[in-house]
Nucleic acid binder design. Structure first.
Length: 541
RNA sequence: GGUCCGUUCGUCUAACGGUUAGGACGCCAGGUUUUCAUCCUGGUAAUAGGGGUUCGAUUCCCCUACGGACUGCCA
């Protein structure tokens, strides 16, 4: 059953030999290694607010990895902390992934064979595993109140313990099923005393985490604390829930942020104690802020003037607004391309990738080890690159949307011509308007600086004469307009700048935009003549 | 503080122990353009420091420095 859909990821040598799974298993037992299990990865955000670009990158890498290996990519919502629930966050996450084009095969919103994919809806499932850990001696009940835990930490700090934690030392002086007798424990449980379940970290053991990016990471068990697995509110903590779900959902590779590396040994232990095969781990380096150091955070965006979120987010409690890449006018493809190269590289000098190319080129082995500072300039460069590479038709749709908002209606052909002319002058989508507004709205004012520099007393007469020539011109193709204007300049012994700059001023109101002849060609005879007249009548007065 | 992870141009990064340390963004200069952009060409700029190992270290090992993550009944 595995084999059929997985043929294409089998190493060539083996796939030659494999006719059916049965043959392989019975006759070519040693080749079993060649049969890779279906690769299944997940993105498992917590819906506590908007997803920032670091999270999007994690999702992206999972997605690319899954697609590359013809595996499955799932979206699981880790909402085991009910106190941190933020309305709208889950929808935000889903919409963000959708905008980015990161589609998933199973998960919240679309379901799948392991539904539900929201941990709060899987609540009942975790208890049994916590109980199993208690039964096999790898976990215990603890009845300490939060206040008592605080006191313990204070007490230890006062004694000079740098890192007070609930561990082999302290657990013996706390209230738990290890210090209480079996009867006392039972009594507490029966009297509905609030309790948590903690893992019993082994005393003296090296725990090895094999990380696809970092290699082997060793941690001594004495450095770990007896983490809470199951909370007094009946919910598991992240640590338990993520192990249980990854196992049940048959996750083969856990690709997540580096901030999880310190708790990876705990997770390794949990797999062991539950008797499960752990997935392969890959801890991604962090995204750092562009200036100074530190993890990129929500505040950095507004402070430095670039979005840190894919989509605009309005905090439902404070009303605070954080800008998004979509609303700032980035193209999703450019955004994704930029993000993909932040921490990963193909080993070649290629930087511009279609999604399919990214899928083909991606590999975890080529993910770097060190954190990457996010560079907003590079993001803009990517967007400009994609913008100017967009087909005219798509640019015209983007520009058309802006016009619609402004209540401007134009002919399709006109819009297409304008789009073609300005697309490589725009970095972000709103620039499309900034670079083209004069096509749709005739200038009402004329850049003072240009007026000062070029508008001479003889200018109105010169433009008037040119206007008359244009009136008698029928061929308004770019080439013809070009030769008409140049002919006029030449015939009258004028300077190019003298005419071109003032003509441009009359047409666009300033000193910018595509070639004058091209503008005239698109504007057409009537509009061109009207604008020249208007400038003659108004400029310099 | 402790544990873990990391450190190549300003930034993103390449270089399976032997390269004039490569590319991209940015910046600077020149060219194209009647303007502003684009575009093209060129330039600027890096192996954190110190010890080893080696004929030879960006690359392997150790120390130091610096940075980061973690250190919750958060994820």
């Amino acid at each position: 059953m595995l084999i059929n859909s997985k043929r294409n990821i089998l190493p060539g040598r083996c796939s030659q030999l494999l006719k059916t799974a049965e043959v392989t298993f019975t006759i070519f037992a040693p080749l079993k290694k060649c049969i890779m299990k279906e690769i299944r990865v997940r993105f498992a955000p917590s819906p506590t607010g908007p997803l920032h670009i670091g999270g999007v990158r994690t999702a992206l890498y999972n997605y690319l990895f899954a697609r590359k290996h013809n595996g499955k990519f799932l979206l699981r919502i880790e909402d085991t902390d009910q106190t941190r629930y933020v309305p709208g966050a889950e929808e935000y996450i889903i919409e963000s992934l959708k905008w980015c084009g990161i589609d998933y095969d199973e998960g919240v919103g679309i379901g799948g064979p392991h539904a539900p994919y929201r941990q709060s809806e899987r609540k009942e499932l975790y208890k049994a595993y916590a109980a199993e850990l208690i039964n096999n001696g790898h976990a215990y009940y603890a009845f300490d109140t939060p206040e008592e835990l605080d006191q313990m930490r204070e007490r230890l700090k006062a004694k000079g313990v740098a890192t007070p934690q609930y561990d082999a030392f302290t657990r013996s002086e706390m209230v738990n099923s290890l210090t209480l007798s079996a009867d006392e424990t039972k009594a507490k449980l029966n009297s509905w005393s609030p309790y948590v379940i903690r893992i019993l970290i082994p005393e003296n053991e090296e725990i090895l985490v094999n990380d696809l990016i970092r290699g082997e990471v060793n941690v001594h068990s004495s450095r770990l604390d007896d983490k809470v697995l199951f909370k007094s509110d009946g919910m598991p903590t992240y640590h338990l829930a993520n192990i249980v779900d990854d196992h049940l959902m048959e996750i083969t590779h856990v690709i997540r942020g580096e901030e999880w590396l310190p708790s990876a040994p705990l997770h390794v232990l949990l797999y062991r104690y539950l008797g499960w095969q752990p997935p392969l781990f890959a801890h991604l380096p962090l995204l750092l802020k562009p200036d100074g150091n530190g993890k990129l955070s929500k505040r950095d965006g507004d402070r430095l003037g670039f979005p840190v979120f894919p989509l605009k987010w309005t905090d439902p409690f404070s009303g605070e607004i954080s800008s998004g890449y979509r609303e700032s006018g980035y193209l999703p493809h450019a955004f994704i391309n930029m993000l993909a190269l932040l921490g990963w590289n193909p080993g070649t000098e290629q930087e511009v990738f279609s999604i399919d190319e990214l899928i083909g080129a991606f590999s975890i082995e080529r993910v770097g080890k060190s954190g990457s500072k996010f560079d907003p300039e590079k993001a803009r460069w990517f967007n400009h690159h994609y913008m100017s590479g967009l087909p005219d038709k798509e640019v015209s749709i983007l520009l058309g949307n802006i016009l619609k908002e402004k209540g401007i209606e134009v002919a399709h052909e006109f819009l297409l011509s304008v789009s073609a002319m300005i697309k490589d002058r725009a970095v972000l989508i709103p620039d499309l308007w900034d670079q083209s507004h004069y096509f749709f709205v005739a200038p009402d004012s004329w850049d003072e600086k240009v007026v000062q520099k070029f508008w001479k007393p003889e200018t109105p007469a010169l433009l008037q004469k040119l206007s008359e020539i244009l009136t008698n011109t029928d061929d308004f193709t770019v080439d013809n307009i070009d030769s008409v204007i140049k002919g006029y300049i030449h015939d009258n012994g004028l300077g190019m700048g003298q005419i071109m700059n003032t003509l441009r001023l009359a047409l666009v109101g300033g000193s910018f935009g595509p070639g004058v002849s091209a503008i005239i060609s698109v504007l057409g005879k009537n509009e061109t003549l009207t604008r020249i007249d208007k400038a003659i009548a108004n400029v310099g007065n």
